[in-house]
Amino acid sequence: MELVKCNKLYKDYGFEKVLKDINITIPKGRIVGLLGSNGSGKTTLIKLINDLITPTKGEVLINGEKPGVNSKKIISYLPERTYLNRDMKVSEILEYFNDFYSDFDTNKAIKLLKKLNINTTDKLKTMSKGTKEKVQLVLVMSRKADLYILDEPIGGVDPAARDYILDTILTNFNKEASIIISTHLISDIERILDDVIFISNGEIVLYEEADKLRKKEKKSIDAIFREMFKC
C-alpha cells in the first residue's frame, strides 16, 4: 500500500482554486522534494495531508485511510512556524512529545539537543528564533515516524545551520519511512532527494526521479526548475 495517495484532489479557498486535480502517489522509503515557488500550493497540499484542512473535491489517503487520528500517529510534521508553547522548558516539551507520541525517542532528542548546547532546563522563551527552529527539527526527527513532512526546513538559516539540518535529516530518518521536503531553495537540498515533484499554480507539473531527470536534461534540478518557471 502506498504511503500517500492523492486522488483527483482539489482545494478551493472561496473562489480561488489553490489545488487542481492532484493525482500523486508517494511510496515508502523515498526522500521527495516538493518544489515550487511561494503560492504554488505546496503548503496547502501539506496541510491536507496533515488533516489541517479538508479537500473541496477528491481525497488524500495515508496508508489507505483518510487523514485522522491514525495518520497523525505516523506522521511527523515540521511546519514553517514555531509551534511550541513558549512558556515551557525543554524538559517539559520533551515530556509532551513523549506523552502523545509512542514513537518518540526522548534520549535521542536529548543527545541531539546537547550537541547544539541546549540543556533540558533551558526555557523556550529565552531562545532565539533560529534555536527554536532547531529544537523543533530535533523533536520531529526524534520520532520513528513513517512519514516526515518538513515545510521549508532551511528557509532563512545560515549555511552552518543548513548543513546541520540536512545532516540531521540524513542521519536520523528511518529507512522504511519517507520524507517530504517542501522548499523553494532547491540547489541547497537537491542532492539529498530521491524524487522531485514540481508544483505550479496548484498543478503537478512533474514527478520524476532526481538522477533520471539530471541524466535526461544534463542540468541541475534547480536549473531545470528555473527554466520551467522563468523566475
Binding site: L52, K72, K73, Y77, R81, Y83, F100
Partner: peptide, 17 residues
Amino acid sequence: RNVLKDEGYLTNTLPVK
C-alpha cells in the same frame, strides 16, 4: 492560542480526536 494560533500546528496534528 493553543488551538487556533501557531501552537495549533502542534495541537491539531496530535494523534487525538
